[in-house]
Design a protein around this nucleic acid. Structure first.
Lengths: 190, 190
DNA sequence: ACCATGTCTTAAGGTACCTTAATTTTTTTC
DNA sequence: GAAAAAAATTAAGGTACCTTAAGACATGGT
């Protein structure tokens, strides 16, 4: 099995062979073509997905049909509708592949089992949630205090690889502006 | 020692007497008057604070001197500049009391010691970070897809107690609008 | 290679929200 | 309990960003 995921985890906790193989046994691997829905709003969000290669995005569709991109996930990122995954609620978001992608999925039942069997994973997920929290909080801060142009510039500086893998339209919907308006902004050098 | 904080923790993990008293020994208690700065931007953010009574807010001040409220913390909430607390970076935010408040503080060193000594706390903080993450993500979603009026309505529904304890000006700066504009919106019934 | 579909760009007119400023109301301070 | 300070409201003029529309440019499927 691919081991980028175990490398990712080993940055934060040390696992023995037995724990590694238990972890691997709880994952399922999928390779999906471009534009495949991994999760639909209103469905049960059963999986937490690790992106091994490719790119995915989660997005919210409001009553008027407008899309807001909640997050992008490229290689080595995890993605799900976390609130609904953890609380067994119908999904609020959609998740789809942006390009051909290979992902490893951890079901909710296996997530619970993993935490029971190897409590060290509490630390791993604590750190993962910490990072996710502080990242979202910084995003809120930027949304409140920066102009659209500054937010775009900040995004390009922070995520140059994502900029290469997704469309401007998708970036605009992440920043909360229209693609037309993004198009009028001065482009920063990458 | 006040035990609202242990009650809060007991919702998620079970502690024996020894663990409880270790936890208590790692905290320090402070009672602060209204409008007291608990953290200044650029300082080292040394504490994670649990609010026993009163109300605090964290806010970011941009170059033009504009304030954006990042979060409110009333009784039973935790507050800090999480990114800077965890990563030993100079604080980005200010934190101040909105009214006379009693707080319990956990220093970074004691936080590390607690996690070492009682690994069960990894689970507690994992859940705390999870909740913080999903809350912030929902806020991002609302900022992207709702109008100012809808966000205000949602805030009032979600946090009626906070509405009673803070000014409209502070709520406006949490929502990313001016107090003048908030004042023109139709007020929902509480 | 071609057609279809979607993305990117430009531009004109519109709106949600901002700025400034003045008045009223509430809260704080001595 | 009066004076001072801060919050809340109202209103007029301004701007950042939106909507619609149309043409240029990519990209993907057969």
């Amino acid at each position: 099995m691919e081991d980028g995921i175990l490398k990712n985890i080993s940055k934060h906790i040390l696992l023995n062979d037995e724990e590694r193989s238990l972890f691997n046994s709880l994952l399922s691997c999928k390779t999906l073509p471009k534009k495949t829905l991994v999760l639909q709003a209103d469905q049960d969000c059963r999986y937490l997905s690790y992106v091994s290669s490719g790119a995915l995005r989660s997005y919210y569709v409001d009553r008027e049909g407008r899309e807001s991109t909640i997050m992008f996930a490229i290689a080595d990122w995890w993605i799900t509708d976390m609130y609904c995954y953890l609380n067994r609620k119908p999904a609020m978001m959609h998740i789809e592949t942006i390009e051909k992608s290979t992902i490893f999925q951890l079901s909710r039942a296996n997530f619970d089992q993993l935490l029971e069997a190897v409590p060290k994973f509490e630390k791993f997920f604590r750190i993962m949630m910490q990072n996710a929290y502080t990242r979202e909080q910084l995003r809120v801060m930027e949304n409140l205090s920066l102009t659209a142009e500054e937010r775009y510039h900040s995004f390009v500086m922070k995520y140059p690889q994502i900029v290469r893998q997704v469309t401007k339209k998708q970036i605009a919907s992440y920043l909360g502006i229209t693609p037309e308006f993004l198009s009028t902004l001065k482009k920063p050098e990458i």
